[in-house]
Design a protein around this nucleic acid. Structure first.
Lengths: 231, 231
DNA sequence: CGATTTACTTGACATTTATCAACATAAGGT
DNA sequence: ACCTTATGTTGATAAATGTCAAGTAAATCG
């Protein structure tokens, strides 16, 4: 491992996902021997949709963007990644390909674990396997929600969802400065950039939020939640 | 087991999913002891969204409809089930709830396997577990496609998808008689019933399909595929 | 520092899509 | 058979949304 990477061992890693807590020391060591840490610059591609799934990745620092490359160069942003999140699931045990692309938003470090090692450990450790299932299925359920949100709500509801997601899940504050573009917000809500800007403007005029450039503040969470539910 | 149900044993069952072929005889017997077959009338609910996931079900005869109950009583049809298909995945190892509803389209028989037994077997048999993962992940990937199809295509593309799905996957023929309603087709393509009817009419007028009531025939598969791709 | 690109914003417009209402047809029950 | 109800169909209309064009602000680069 090159000296300029962070040489923390899995065993003592503070960025470890819950799922790895179910491993024995030996298994943790085994994972540790089959992983490497990589640093990405803003905008760089971490996973490429259609590419071979050789590693599962865990975010250790920075922000990432998970998106499906759809029709006519249009992207659909599935979620914004924070440290401790793991990516690469859908191809596992399946076709061993990436089904979405992931890119670095700012400077990102991520741990890459060889899928072979990942699967080997999963075969040994039933609790780990169960947690893996749980992880995959909870992602699947989130996609069900996304399916409903994006097909049955109109634009204000979808933007409300996006803003609540950014506030509550990604930046964990009512007041946040986004490091994603308006296009990304639009891709998160499955609409055109112009429409996203307009709805944000309406929310601003209705005093539901403030927004100066990339600085957002949610003023009325409940009103946004109501808009989200109404559609 | 009541005498009016079909008393085939799993071991010799012709309706068995591939995934069960990886079980040993003992494991198959174990599953056999923890399953029961149920018959449903048209329209009856097989799984109810939000309900507890106590059993995994396998279709043994008839047609079923898998749908998410969304906003304002609007449904999104995920797929149409045929024998040998298995349902109940998303709640497994997760929250043990149903994340979609399933109803019988015509007369349906289905095998209900206790989740406890299902999980027990999965813990014993690694190959079975791997196949289970594969199954869940391939469903997940299909939902990614659905997410793109429904958010990035406009109505003709979505109806083309629905018709191609019915033709190639569900009824496996260019000429088929549907046992689902126009509303169901609309719910499959995430649009209003009226819009679905209009697009079908346009396809009919363009000689891409014929359609008399519930009788459909795909005349120009390639043209439909092109419309599907164009969006 | 100016020049050039990139991201953001707004307005006008065209298109897509849903809704509503009316009616036609088919299916089920007594 | 007739009535009732559910389903399908069509047209007119309104609402939602995307596209295009123009301009502004901001970031990057030599």
């Amino acid at each position: 491992m090159p000296s300029y990477t962070n040489t923390v061992f899995c065993k003592n890693c503070s960025k470890k996902l819950n799922i790895f807590q179910f491993l024995t020391d030996d298994e943790t060591t085994y994972i540790n021997e089959h992983r490497h840490e990589v640093r990405f610059n803003p905008g760089e591609t971490i996973f490429k949709q259609g590419g071979e799934l050789t590693h599962i990745a865990c975010m250790t620092s920075g922000y990432g963007k998970v998106y499906i490359e759809g029709i006519n160069k249009k992207n659909l942003v599935l979620n914004i990644l924070r440290p401790t999140e793991m990516i690469g699931g859908p191809g596992l045990f399946n076709d061993y390909r990436h089904h979405y692309s992931v890119s670095a938003i700012d400077e990102v470090t991520a741990c890459f674990i060889k899928v072979d090692a990942f699967i080997e450990v999963s075969k040994q450790n039933k609790e780990f396997t169960a947690e893996l299932f749980k992880w995959i299925n909870s992602k699947g359920v989130r996609n069900f929600e996304k399916l409903i949100n994006l097909t049955q709500k109109q634009m204000p509801g979808r933007i409300a969802d996006a803003l609540l997601y950014l506030s509550m899940v990604v930046y964990e504050s009512n007041h946040f400065v986004v490091n994603i573009s308006r296009q990304d917000i639009a891709d998160l809500a499955a609409m055109s950039k112009e429409s996203a800007i307009r709805i944000i403007k309406e929310f601003k005029e209705s005093k539901l939020i403030t927004c100066e450039g990339n600085e957002f503040e949610i003023l009325d969470v409940e009103a946004l939640q109501k808009i989200s539910q109404t559609g």
